[in-house]
């Protein structure tokens, strides 16, 4: 997010006497309808569940306790460690990391290639990469489901050319979810890396080349450190939405590929839900995301000083 601090050349205070009024609507709208709700959600995660969905206003740590301990149906058995929810969180982190690595492997060369095109074709390449991002995520995920389903076009094509003998079971696997996440957020990886490679001064590479550095050494030791902020930004832009993704695990996965997003959604659908538990799961997800973002902000400010 590059905006916000002003670039020096255009620092102007023409509107400073009224800036409070100009900013007020955004403070109010986001403050009342997002910040207050998030704080309320924090409160809810410490309340007692009501069985038909909703809460009883009574302080309780049950929602967080339920994550780690199984105390039986009536809550008075000796506590055992409950692995189900921990597994879901670990799986979500692994899936998000896997999607990030896949996106980086494909995204970095793509971003580099586009950034080194002549100026007149660069915009077209970049536009081609961005278009899918603007297509409805639901439609993209459904398309992926259509493509990789048991008797879908991918399996038919593989059967026809004789690579496989029986259709691959892709849908409902962790791999399908991984593929869905990768596909959903790939453009997020390409754009920030593109932006930093485009600003990279290739005279540095030329200097290294004149000093007889091998080509891949130039990439690794000269280019990579310079474009690192772009790579980190790309990784965060992929990792964060993957962690809380709902559509890819829901449509491409099954019960064995449950992720945080599906767990949260389940608590608020129908009558079986547990609102405090869903609020607690959301709080844990939000905290994880905020830790990643704070880590990023610190790394970035260190980079600048």
């Amino acid at each position: 997010m590059a905006a916000g601090t002003g670039s020096g050349r255009t620092v102007s205070a023409t509107f400073s006497p009224v800036r409070g009024w100009l900013l007020l609507p955004s403070w109010l709208v986001i403050g009342i309808f997002l910040l207050v709700p998030v704080l309320l959600m924090l409160v809810y995660s410490f309340l007692t569940k009501e069985f038909r969905g909703g809460v009883i206003w009574e302080f309780s740590l049950a929602a967080y306790d339920q994550f780690v301990f199984d105390r039986g149906l009536f809550g008075d058995d000796p506590p055992k460690i409950e692995w189900a929810y921990i597994t879901i969180f670990v799986r979500s982190i692994l899936q998000a990391l896997g999607a990030t690595v896949l996106c980086l492997l494909i995204g970095f060369p793509t971003a580099y290639f586009i950034a080194t095109r002549p100026a007149n074709t660069r915009a077209i390449w970049l536009f081609l990469v961005t278009i899918p991002y603007w297509v409805n995520l639901l439609i993209r995920t459904v398309s992926m489901k259509f493509l990789i389903r048991d008797n879908g076009p991918l399996n038919e094509a593989l059967l026809a050319i004789g690579v496989i003998d029986a259709p691959l079971q892709l849908i409902n696997t962790n791999f399908a979810v991984q593929l869905g996440l990768f596909y959903s957020y790939l453009p997020f990886m390409v754009l920030p890396i593109y932006a930093s490679v485009e600003r990279y001064n290739f005279a540095l590479s030329e200097a290294a080349s004149d000093l007889y550095a091998p080509k891949w050494t130039i990439l690794r030791s000269i280019l990579l450190p310079v474009v690192k902020p772009g790579i980190i930004a790309g990784c965060i832009l992929v990792f964060v939405p993957s962690l809380g993704a709902f559509l890819a695990p829901d449509l491409l996965g099954g019960a064995k590929t449950f992720m945080i997003g599906s767990l949260i959604e389940e608590q608020f659908k129908g009558n079986a839900g547990n609102w405090p538990f869903g609020a607690a799961a959301s709080m844990i997800l939000l905290s994880m995301v905020l830790v990643v973002l704070l880590f990023y902000a610190r790394a970035q400010s260190r980079e600048q000083t």
């Binding site: 709902f246 608020f268 609102w275 609020a279 959301s282 997800l285 939000l286 995301v289």
Partner: peptide
């Protein structure tokens, strides 16, 4: 804020 968290918070609100 992850979308699903915004969704939960808004519903609760």
């Amino acid at each position: 804020v992850p979308e699903i968290v915004t969704a939960v918070a808004t519903l609760i609100f």
